[in-house]
Design a protein around this nucleic acid. Structure first.
Lengths: 338, 338
DNA sequence: CTGTTAGCGCATTCAG
DNA sequence: CTGAATGCGCTAACAG
C-alpha cells in the first residue's frame, strides 16, 4: 500500500503537506500542489479511508435501513428506485452507502446500534416509518443524525422527514374517481401501522365526505401488503350487496393482485370497475390496463432524504423538518367515466 | 466516545487485555474475561470500526456493485431480492454491505477503484456480467477478491462466479412448450451483451434443434430490457406470416410487457399463445395469467455469492470457481397444450 | 506557505 | 496468563 509518506518522499515535501494537498488547502502553493499531485498519480496513491475516518471522526458514509426483509414487501420496485435516488446524491457528494442486512426487527436494531456506536456511518436514512419503531426511538434518543422517508410517528415536528402529502394525494385521486361519476368507491391498502396507509385513507375519506358519498367500513380493506392481500380484498368487495365501482388501491404492486383477481371474476377494468393507485412504479404502465396512479416521485424521495441527511451531518444548515415531495397524477387506462 | 482504555481502567486491567477479550483470545482467563465484559457493558463500550480496520487491514465489509442505473433495469425486483440474499449471510457473518452509487459505467469504475484502493471493503460482488466489463477487468488485474453473479466473459475458469445453468434452463423451459405440442416458438430477450441472455437463447436453440423444429432469426428478438421492449417484439412477431404459438421470454418483467401487448391485440394467453419465462419474481404469480417460469432462486444466488466472497477474503478455503444454483420450473397458467 | 509533533482507537509484537 | 511499547495512515495543532 502506498501511503502519504511515500508520496511525501517522492515529492520532496513533508507528509502534512501532502495531506493538505489532498484537502486542497488554500495555504499550499500551486507549485507544490502540482508537484505533489504528480507524485500521487505516479505512485498510484489513494487515501486510506479508515485512517482518515479515525482521525476525522467522520466517515462520509450514510446508513440506509430497509424495512424488515421478513415480509416480502421488500421486493417492491420502490426500493431499488429510492436507492437510486439516494445513490445519486451520495455519489455526487462522495458519500458511500452502507445497507442494513438484518432480517428481523431486533436484528436491525442491533445493527443500527453497531453502525452508530462503532461509527460506521455519519447518519442514517430510514426507508420506512411505522408506529412505535424502536429503531427510530433509538436514533432519536441518541440524538444521532437521521431522516425518515415517510411520516414519523410521534415527534413529527422534531425529526426530519421526507414525505409526500399523502392525504392530499389520496384526496385528489379519489376525487378523480368521483369526477368520473363514481359513487361507490372502496379503499384497499396495507395495515394501519404504516403511516402511508393512514394518510392515504384519510385523504380518501375526506374526498368521499366532501362529495357527500358514503364510505362504510366494509369499503375500507386493510390487508397484507402483497399478493394474497389484494386478491382477498377483491373477493370480499365483490361479495357485497352493493359492490363498489371504483377502487383506490394504496400501492401499484397491490393493484396488480387486484387486477388479476378482478379478471378472474370476469370484471373488466375500467369498463365495470375503475381502479386508481399510488407510486407510479414503472410497472404501472405495462400492466393491462395500465394504471392511473399517483406519481410520488420515488427517486426524489430518495435524493432529498440523502441531501437532508448530509446537511444535517455536516451542520451546513439544519434542514427543514418536513420536506414534502410534490406528487402528480398520471392518467392511464384503468380509470374511466362511469 | 468510550474507548478500550476506559474499559481497561474500569476493569483494572491493561488495554491490551481488553483487546484480547474482544477477540476472545484463549490466553485470557475466564475470570478476567468476565470482569472486562462487565466493564464493557457497564460503560456501553463498542469498538471503533475504523481504528480496528486501520490496524487489522481488513474491513469485514463487502462492496456490492449494481449495474449502471442509467437503464431502468434496476427497478427489477431481482435486485432487492438478491440483496436480501447477500444481506442474510453478511449479517450472519457480521459483515456490512457497501452499495455502489455510480450511475454511468465510468462513475462505477471510479467508485470501485476507490473502494479497492481506499480499503473500503474486503471484496466485491458484481451483480451483473457483461461483455468486456471494465470493472471486472480492473478487479481481475488487481487480483482483488471478487465474485460475479452470472457468467464472466473471459476467464471463466479463473473468476469465481455464482450462476444458474441458464443453457439447461432455457432448454428445459423450451422443451416444456414443445411437449405441450408447440412447434412455432419464438424467443424474446435482452441484448446479447448480457450473458444470461446468451445462455438462455442457446438453450432455446438447442431444444428446438433437438426437436427438429425451426428457429429462424425472425423468431429471435433481442431488445431493450424493459417496457417498450417486450411490446415491440410482440408487434413484430404477430406481423409474421406464421406467427409463433409459443413464446420464451427471458425475464418475468419483460413478460409483463409482452402479456400486455398481447392482450391489446386480442390474443389470449395461454389459449392462443403460450408464454414461459425466467426468474420467478413474486410478480409472476399475480399476473393474469400467472406465469410458467424458471425459478432461478435469486435469494440463493445472493447468499452463495456472499458466502463465496467471504471465503475468498478470509482465505479459509478457495471456493469453487463456478457455483451453480439449481433452478426449477414453476408451472402456472401461462402455458398450455396447443 | 511548509515542517514537526502528537495522537485518533485499536491489535500485536515482545517481555515478563 | 497479562502488561508495556509500538505503529497502522492520516489530520491537526503548533511552530516557524
Amino acid at each position: 500500500m502506498v501511503t502519504i509518506k511515500d508520496v511525501a518522499k517522492k515529492a520532496g515535501v513533508s507528509p502534512s503537506t501532502v495531506s493538505r494537498v489532498i484537502a486542497d488547502s488554500s495555504r499550499i502553493s500551486q507549485d507544490t500542489k502540482k508537484k505533489v499531485r504528480k507524485a500521487m498519480s505516479a505512485l498510484g496513491y489513494h487515501p486510506n479511508i479508515n485512517a482518515r475516518n479515525l482521525v476525522a471522526k467522520k466517515t462520509k458514509a450514510i446508513g440506509v435501513i430497509m424495512p424488515s426483509s421478513a415480509d416480502k414487501a421488500l421486493q417492491n420496485p420502490f426500493f431499488p428506485e429510492i436507492l437510486r435516488g439516494i445513490g445519486s446524491v451520495a455519489h455526487e457528494m462522495e458519500y458511500s452507502i452502507t445497507l442494513s442486512t438484518g432480517i428481523t426487527e431486533s436484528e436491525i436494531l442491533n445493527e443500527v446500534k453497531r453502525m452508530v456506536y462503532g461509527s460506521y456511518v455519519d447518519g442514517v436514512i430510514l426507508l420506512y416509518s411505522k408506529v412505535d419503531d424502536p429503531v427510530m426511538m433509538f436514533l432519536y434518543e441518541q440524538n444521532f443524525p437521521f431522516v425518515v422517508v415517510g411520516k414519523p410517528h410521534k415527534q413529527i415536528n422534531e425529526v426530519t422527514h421526507v414525505d409526500n402529502d399523502n392525504v392530499a394525494a389520496g384526496h385528489q385521486i379519489t376525487k378523480h374517481l368521483i369526477d368520473l361519476g363514481h359513487e361507490r368507491i372502496a379503499f384497499i391498502g396495507g395495515f394501519l401501522d404504516l403511516f402511508v396507509t393512514r394518510d392515504r385513507v384519510e385523504g380518501y375519506e375526506a374526498a368521499m365526505k366532501e362529495a357527500g358519498l358514503p364510505c362504510p367500513s366494509s369499503y375500507k380493506i386493510h390487508t397484507e401488503f402483497l399478493k394474497s392481500g389484494g386478491r382477498e380484498a377483491v373477493e370480499f368487495l365483490l361479495s357485497l350487496e352493493t359492490p363498489p365501482t371504483g377502487l383506490v388501491v394504496s400501492d401499484d404492486i397491490m393493484s396488480l393482485g387486484v387486477l388479476s383477481r378482478l379478471e378472474e371474476f370476469g370484471v373488466s377494468v375500467p369498463k365495470d370497475i375503475s381502479l386508481v393507485s399510488f407510486n407510479n412504479v414503472y410497472l404501472s404502465e405495462i400492466t393491462k390496463p395500465s394504471l392511473t396512479t399517483v406519481d410520488i416521485q420515488i427517486y426524489d424521495l430518495g435524493a432529498y432524504s440523502a441531501k437532508a441527511l448530509i446537511e444535517k451531518t455536516t451542520n451546513k444548515a439544519e434542514p427543514e423538518k418536513r420536506i414534502i415531495i410534490p406528487h402528480s397524477i398520471v392518467y392511464r387506462e384503468s380509470s374511466a367515466r362511469r
